[in-house]
C-alpha cells in the first residue's frame, strides 16, 4: 500500500480520470443553464414592455402612493370595514366547512385502501384534479354569474375549489392510515362501514381536522382576494378604495387584513395543537 505522499499527481490522474478531467458537457452545463435562464429573462423583459424610463416613472409614482398611505386612516367607514372583515372571515369559515363536509365521502372513493379498483378510482381523482386546476378567482366569477354578486358567491367559490384540494389531501391521509386497526375490526366481524367508522376515522380525523384548520387560515387570505372580483368581503372594499385612489383607507384595509390573518394564524395554531395534541409534535 502506498502512502498518500508517494502518489504523484499523474498517477492519481490516471487512476481517477473522471475527477480530474470532467467531460466538457458536465463543466459547461451549469454556465450554459445560467446563460439560457438570463437570456429568457432579458427576452421576457423586452417582450413585456419593461423599459427603464417606465420603471422609474412607476417607482416614483409608487413612492408617492406609499407616502400618501401614511398615516392609515379609515375615515368614517370603520364600521363598514369591520362588517366587511366579519364577512370575509365568515366566507372562509363556511366555505372551508362546506368543502370538508362534501370532500370526506368523495375522498373515501379516491383512496387506494378503500376502493382497490383502479377503474373506479381514476375518474374520481381526475375529477378532483380538474377542479383544483381552476383558480378560486375563476370559480368566484362563475358563481357570481349563478347566484349574483355578494359574499354567498364567495362561499360557494371557496367551497368548490377547496373541495378539490381536500379530496386529494383527505384521500392521502386515509391511504397513510394504519391498516392493522381496520383488520382488527374485520377480524371481530365488523362490516365495511364498521371498518371505516371504528378502524379508519379515529386515525384520520385528527389529521383532517388539522388540515381543515390550516385551510381556514389560508382561506382568510383567499377570501380577501375573491372580493376583488365582486364576491363580497373586505376585498371588495379594498378594490373599490384602490380604484378611487383613497390611499389612506387602502393602507388601513391592508393593515386590517394583516392583523386578521395573524390573529387567525395564532388561534388556529392553538386549536390545532389542542386537537392533534402532542402526538403530532413528538
Amino acid at each position: 500500500m502506498t502512502a498518500p505522499q508517494d502518489v504523484d499527481t499523474a498517477q492519481m490522474r490516471a487512476r481517477y480520470p473522471d475527477v480530474f478531467d470532467r467531460p466538457a458537457s458536465a463543466r459547461l452545463a451549469m454556465p450554459a443553464m445560467i446563460v439560457a435562464a438570463l437570456a429568457i429573462l432579458v427576452y421576457g423583459l423586452v417582450d413585456l414592455d419593461f423599459s427603464p424610463s417606465r420603471l422609474f416613472a412607476g417607482l416614483s409614482q409608487l413612492g408617492w402612493i406609499s407616502l400618501m398611505m401614511i398615516p392609515p386612516d379609515p375615515g368614517s367607514s370603520l364600521p363598514i370595514y369591520l362588517k366587511a372583515l366579519g364577512e370575509t372571515l365568515s366566507i372562509a369559515l363556511l366555505g372551508t366547512t362546506l368543502a370538508a363536509l362534501f370532500a370526506l365521502p368523495v375522498s373515501l372513493l379516491a383512496a387506494r385502501n378503500i376502493i382497490p379498483s383502479q377503474i373506479l378510482r381514476f375518474p374520481v381523482r381526475r375529477f378532483l384534479d380538474s377542479i383544483r386546476g381552476v383558480d378560486t378567482l375563476i370559480w368566484a366569477l362563475v358563481w357570481i354569474n349563478v347566484v349574483g354578486l355578494g359574499p354567498f358567491a364567495g362561499v360557494l367559490a371557496i367551497a368548490v375549489s377547496d373541495f378539490g384540494a381536500f379530496g386529494k389531501l383527505f384521500s392521502e391521509a386515509i391511504e397513510g392510515a394504519d391498516q392493522k386497526q381496520v383488520e382488527g375490526i374485520r377480524a371481530s366481524g365488523g362490516s365495511a362501514l364498521h371498518e371505516i367508522r371504528f378502524g379508519l376515522l379515529p386515525q384520520v380525523l385528527p389529521v383532517i381536522a388539522g388540515q381543515v384548520l390550516y385551510f381556514i387560515e389560508s382561506n382568510t387570505r383567499s377570501a380577501t382576494i375573491i372580493g376583488i372580483v365582486g364576491a363580497g368581503g373586505i376585498g371588495l372594499q379594498l378594490a373599490e378604495q384602490i380604484r378611487v385612489l383613497e390611499w389612506q383607507k387602502v393602507s388601513f384595509l391592508i393593515l386590517m387584513i394583516l392583523v386578521a390573518v395573524a390573529a387567525i394564524d395564532f388561534i388556529s395554531g392553538k386549536l390545532r395543537f389542542a386537537i392533534i395534541g402532542r402526538r403530532a409534535v413528538a
Binding site: 417606465r54 420603471l55 379594498l238 385612489l245
Partner: peptide
C-alpha cells in the same frame, strides 16, 4: 402575506395597465 393580486391592483395604477404590473 399581502396577496399578489392586491399588489397587482396597486401596481396597475402606478405602472399602468399591462404585464409589467403583473410581473
Amino acid at each position: 402575506t399581502v396577496p399578489g393580486i392586491v399588489f397587482a391592483l396597486i401596481f396597475v395604477i402606478a405602472f399602468g395597465l399591462g404585464p409589467m404590473a403583473g410581473v
